[in-house]
């Protein structure tokens, strides 16, 4: 948010950064190869069917095993991320932001300005220049999106 000030510490010396990034502590591969994950055991053809439905995509049935294996790897990775204790980090993060006052809120309303580089001002870009097909200024989504 533009009205929240982020606090930035002192820059680290280059030598320290170099040492930090060249020291190998762990490998990404390890995170994908966790031996047991109960969530992985539940991933099957049905899971893929559901995900495809949710995402509105289609995929050949004979390729499902490959997709299942890939999904299991991702879930193992996410399980590892979830296992990290983040309590300490959270409390630090909460202090990074200033609390918003009514005065601050009102002044940020007054000072906000549309940014043409974000396409916020009128005629700063032509939204119809991107699609290959449109109809009277509307985007067109084919294969129907019949409401339930």
């Amino acid at each position: 948010m533009s009205f929240l000030k982020t606090l930035v510490g002192k820059p680290l010396p280059k030598s320290m950064i170099k040492e930090y990034i060249t020291t190998v502590n762990w490998q990404v591969d390890e995170l994908f190869k966790q031996v047991h994950s109960p969530r992985c055991d539940c991933i099957n053809d049905e899971t893929i069917d559901k995900l495809l439905k949710l995402s509105g995509l289609s995929y050949p049935k004979d390729q499902y095993p490959k997709l299942i294996e890939s999904l299991k790897e991702q879930v193992r990775f996410i399980d590892r991320l979830h296992a990290v204790d983040v309590e300490v980090e959270d409390s630090i993060n909460a202090n990074l932001y200033e609390r918003l006052t009514l005065e601050g809120l009102k002044s940020s309303i007054e000072s906000q300005q549309q940014d043409p580089s974000k396409g916020e001002t009128l005629q700063s870009w032509d939204p119809m220049s991107l699609p290959t097909e449109s109809q009277n200024g509307n985007y067109i989504v084919k294969e129907g999106l019949l409401k339930e």
Binding site: G137, Y139, I140, V141, E143, G144, L145, K147
Partner: peptide, 15 residues
């Protein structure tokens, strides 16, 4: 979105 169904095709207009 406005769903349009004509003979032979169906699509949605998006605003």
């Amino acid at each position: 979105s406005v769903y349009v169904e004509t003979e032979g095709e169906s699509y949605s207009k998006i605003d």
